[in-house]
């Protein structure tokens, strides 16, 4: 697509001439993004369709997709609800150390995932601060699928908070007061007046968090036991295939994951467009 948009630029006056920033932008994107993506897709196309299907739907791959997507969906949904409440509390209420809490929300963006995995594995192990409280109840977190879930909760936490906060900030309080003065209860006001405009932001945040959780590797590989059919996620499976020099296996599963990321990217763009329409 780079070459086409550049060559068109000589014909259509609306398009700028290829100046230095354009050359750098397209050249860099071509080498850094398009070439690697093309290498992955074309490499998987060198296999026969039957072979691709066999690898992509092998029992171990199917189980890895299930662990990855279902766990990420749960993490996304929980963070959707919790993130909405956190954003609400940070925007609407005053309490001591609120600013510190607000800035710490970004921790999962800034903390390297290996550190997150390390500390979650310690804290939620049977002898850890939180794991030892759950162990008597028969709940094991570290090195189980629950550990994968906690790691995904951690890394996808900021997304919903950060997408909802600006929308809540801009929401006009007068409309809520109008709803109250017209006799709506607090609950009705929330459901009918406050919630509808922030739904696109919540869904965008959930989708961003879900996409992040689906691709997560660093924290999960440390906190999980990575046993197939138990808590093995798709990115770890790709890694293991590569370690075994099974390039075909890694490539096919990698392509499946890439295509899903592209679909997620499309969904996120559509959600954001919906949110902008709502805002206007």
């Amino acid at each position: 697509m780079t070459t086409s948009s550049i060559s068109q630029s000589t014909r259509l006056p609306a398009i700028p001439r290829p100046s230095i920033p354009w050359v750098i932008t397209f050249g860099y994107l071509f080498v850094m993004l398009l070439l690697p993506v093309a290498a992955l897709i074309l490499k998987s196309l060198t296999l026969s369709p039957a072979e691709i299907w066999r690898i992509a739907t092998s029992p171990m791959a199917l189980s890895a997709y299930e662990v990855t997507f279902v766990t990420a969906l749960f993490a996304g949904a929980i963070n959707g609800l919790a993130g909405l409440i956190i954003a609400w509390v940070l925007i609407r209420y005053e309490f001591p150390s609120k600013r510190i809490v607000d800035s710490l929300i970004d921790l999962p963006f800034a903390l390297p995932t290996a550190v997150a995995g390390l500390t979650l594995a310690t804290v939620y192990s049977n002898t850890g601060w939180l794991g030892s409280l759950l162990a008597p109840l028969g709940i094991k977190v570290a090195f189980t699928r629950l550990g994968v879930f906690v790691a995904m909760l951690f890394i996808s936490l900021p997304f919903v908070v950060r997408t909802v906060q600006p929308v809540l900030q801009e929401a006009e309080r007068e409309i809520e007061e109008a709803a109250w003065s017209l006799g709506a209860s607090q609950w009705q006001t929330f459901w009918r007046v406050v919630l509808p405009p922030i739904i696109p932001a919540v869904l965008t945040g959930v989708a961003l968090g879900f996409a992040r959780a689906v691709g997560e590797y660093g924290s999960v590989v440390i906190v999980a036991s990575n046993v197939p059919f138990k808590d093995l996620i798709a990115p770890v499976l790709i890694f293991q295939r590569l370690e075994q020099y099974d390039y075909a296996g890694a490539t096919v599963i990698g392509t499946v994951m890439l295509l899903i990321s592209l679909l997620m990217l499309l969904a996120i763009n559509l959600l954001q467009a919906w949110g902008r329409r709502y805002g206007n």
Partner: peptide, 10 residues
Amino acid sequence: SVSPVVAGLM
């Protein structure tokens, strides 16, 4: 949105 592992694979 691409998994870092997929990025490395590419």
